[in-house]
Each structure stands twice: as C-alpha cells, then as structure tokens.
Design a protein around this nucleic acid. Structure first.
Lengths: 124, 124
DNA sequence: ACCAGTCATCTTGTAATGCAAGATATATGA
DNA sequence: TCATATATCTTGCATTACAAGATGACTGGT
C-alpha cells in the first residue's frame, strides 16, 4: 500500500545537502567569496554578477545572507571603512562557515564530475 | 522615492534559464539520459540514483517528466517490451528536446567553469 | 536650504519545484 | 486470498530565487 519500502523514513527534509547543492549554487558562491575576505552586501552582489555571472538580485542576496547568519556560517558587523561616511554591514565567514565551504565544495566537485560524465555519455 | 532609477527593465531577467539551471540540474540529467535511448520512469530514477548519485525520489521524477512533456521536449508512449506483461510508459527526446539539451549543457559548462574558478580562488 | 539621485539594506508577495507520503493499479508467488 | 514488487501518478508542504517596493542616509546641483 505504501509502495515505498526503501525510502529512509527518518531522513527528514533539510538533511540532504545534495538537494541544497542542486538548488543553491548561490550558497557555495557566497561562501567562496567570503572566504577571501569580508564583504558587504552589494559588494557580494557585484562580484557574483560580474565574476561568476550568476545574475543575482539584491532581493536574493539579503535573505540568503540572513539565512547563512542564522545557520551560523556567517557573522555580520557594521563597520566604517576608510573615508566613507556611512557604515556598511560586513559579512564574514565563521569557522563553521569555513567547514561548510569545504564540505559544499567537495559535494560540488562530485556533482560536476558526474554531470560531465553524463553529458559526455550522451554525445556521439 | 521609489528608489527605482536603476532598473533596466525590458528583457533583463525574463528568460531565467540560468535560474532553471541553478535549481534544476535534474532537467539536464534527464535530457542526457533520454538522449541515449528512451527510458521509462523508474528506469530513469534508477540511473539518476546509481549513476549520477542525484538521490531523486519518484515524487520528483514524474512531475518533472510531465513538465518536460508539456514543454515539448519529451514525448511519451505506452509500450510493451520483450517478455514483460504490463505496459510501461516510455519517454523519449523530441527534436526540440535535443536542442534544449544542447543549450542546457552549454549553460552547464559555463556555470561549472565559473564556479570552479571561484572555488580555486577561495583556496590558499 | 532644498530636492533629486545614489548607495545600501531590508521586506513582501509570488511562482517554481524538490520531496515525503499517499493513492492506484497490475502482475507474481506463497 | 493475501502480501509483495513494480510502476505511475497526486497531494501538501517547505524552500527559495526573484521582482517590486520601502526605508534611510549621504551627496551634488541649483
């Protein structure tokens, strides 16, 4: 009746990091960018658009940053840099965020390897 | 007031194929698999899980197939194969699906190149 | 001083979709 | 007959990328 005898029932949603990866390359991109140095919001946006060509909107980046902060991967701090007058909110990687980056990028490597193999296989 | 002086409206983000890609590597994987030969639903599921390690559920694959069919990329046909008794629904690529595969895999190549560059840059 | 534009952050509403769980139906074997 | 396996499909929920809007503060032109 249930027809689903093999599915691991204990695995509630949110455990599967692979699903996360498939949906959000954005998470990985963000962690990579913050690994280099702290950035503020619009700066991240610019780097994603120009460098990674991900074509992200600011309505995407701020909720993403807040999710990452709530997960403990990112910390935020208002700061005044150099000669600019207004403070900007700088986001930085936490140690736990560094670990997450390591884990996510390993997952990415696996996924991209498999996908490339699939694509090659589908060619003459 | 509206603070909306910057939006270059028009064609900007309409297509969203990139968003599609980011979210759904599944689409690409499906097209690749069907390019080789027609498959029926659970067969696709097995290949995705074993070969691509995408960890997909059947509640994912059937809606995906129906979307692809509605988009004209995939055609479906009940068929009886060899000695098995019950018919299975075989899905195959249409010419338009082949074109979509070509387009999507080009997008994939771009994305994976940029992501790998980002990841490399974030390393010591 | 005033006003328009820019920078920067944040919120809201919508649409897409992956997924667990359930429903349905048929064939096979105990 | 009943349980199991195969196979397809549906439903409800949670996530989330995005457009559009809101807010506030500084700057430059007049």
């Amino acid at each position: 009746m249930t027809g689903d005898a093999k599915s691991p029932k204990g695995a509630r949603r949110g455990e599967s990091r692979r699903a996360q990866l498939i949906k959000g390359v954005l998470d990985l991109a963000l962690l990579c960018i913050l690994k280099e140095r702290p950035h503020y919001g619009l700066e991240i946006l610019q780097r994603m658009n120009e460098e990674a060509e991900l074509d992200v909107a600011d309505g995407t980046i701020y909720p993403l940053l807040h999710r990452m902060e709530a997960s403990g991967f990112v910390s935020a701090e208002w700061r005044i840099e150099g000669d600019q007058a207004r403070p900007r909110k700088y986001y930085a990687l936490t140690p736990s965020g560094v670990a997450e980056l390591k884990s996510l990028s390993a997952d990415w490597r696996t996924l991209s390897t498999r996908m490339n193999a699939l694509i090659d296989k589908s060619k003459p």
